Amino acid sequence: MIGLRRLLAGLAAGVIFGVGLSVSGMLDPVRVRGFLDVTGAWDPSLMFVLGGAVAVSALGYCLSRRLPRPVLADAFQIPTNRRIDAALVGGSAVFGIGWGLSGFCPGPAVAALSTGRLPVAVFVAAMLVGMAAHRFATAPGSRAAAGPTR
């Protein structure tokens, strides 16, 4: 029964997320590019979306510190790694470049599939191929997972 409750809670959270992205304009790549264009015709409106997301996340994090455990899980999954390494910096750079070129972030892109636009579908397909390539390249026993050779 807890599995069904988790599934329904995830579905509800996803619907709320998608509606919020749609209402905020995050599904429109033109608006996103306008936000990222800090040297041109900068559109600061998405800063409010970011601020709202940070506020809700901070509230949830503070709440998680006061609760003994989540309602639908055995424990909270709070990251413990605080190290900034090449993989984090490189991945962040690739993510930012992709976001800037396409105007899509992964979450909004998945939500934007509901628009039926071909560029959205192409972006999501490319994103999935990239995710699969990463999983393949970093799987245990792969050359990339083994690290550099001498």
Rank of each mutant, 00 (worst) to 15 (best):
S102D: 06
D37F: 05
F136S: 13
R66T: 12
L36I: 00
P140G: 13
N81P: 06
P79K: 03
S92H: 14
R135Q: 15
G130Y: 04
P68K: 06
A73H: 12
R33D: 00
D28N: 09
I2R: 11
P108L: 06
A55T: 11
G34D: 02
M131G: 13
R143W: 11
A53L: 11
G130F: 04
A145D: 01
C105F: 13
A73E: 11
R150P: 13
L8I: 07
R69T: 00
V38W: 11
D28T: 03
R66F: 10
F76Y: 14
L88D: 09
G147H: 05
I2G: 01
L59C: 14
V124H: 09
S22E: 14
M131C: 15
V120G: 02
L101W: 11
D85K: 09
N81Y: 02
R82T: 15
M26L: 05
A13W: 10
P68A: 08
S142R: 10
G107E: 10
A53Q: 06
T80I: 13
R82L: 14
R135G: 13
S102I: 05
A139Q: 13
A144D: 07
G18D: 13
P148M: 05
F76E: 00
P148A: 13
R69Y: 06
R69L: 04
I78Q: 12
R117H: 08
A112M: 05
S22Y: 07
W42S: 03
R69E: 12
A93P: 08
A93D: 01
A109T: 04
V23I: 15
G91H: 11
P44D: 02
R150T: 10
L101F: 08
S45D: 09
L8Q: 05
F76G: 11
F136H: 15
G98M: 05
G3C: 01
C105P: 00
L7G: 00
P119Q: 08
P29N: 01
R135L: 14
F95Q: 08
L50G: 04
L63H: 07
P106K: 05
L128H: 10
V19S: 04
G100S: 13
S24H: 00
L4S: 01
L11N: 01
S64R: 08
R143M: 10
G40Y: 11
V19N: 00
V120N: 00
V15P: 00
S57Q: 14
V23Q: 09
L88C: 11
S22P: 00
V89Q: 12
L46V: 06
A86H: 15
G107P: 09
A41N: 14
V122R: 02
A146I: 01
V94Q: 08
L8A: 11
L27Q: 07
L101V: 10
R69F: 03
G96I: 07
R33S: 02
S64V: 00
R150L: 09
F123L: 01
T80S: 12
V120T: 10
R135K: 15
A125V: 13
P68Q: 08
G141M: 14
L59N: 00
S92A: 15
I2N: 02
G98R: 08
R117F: 03
R143C: 01
S24I: 06
H134L: 15
V49R: 04
M26A: 15
S64C: 06
V129A: 14
T149S: 12
A121N: 00
F104G: 03
L36M: 09
G14R: 07
F123G: 04
P68H: 02
G60H: 09
A125Y: 06
L67R: 12
G90V: 14
S22W: 15
P108S: 12
S92N: 04
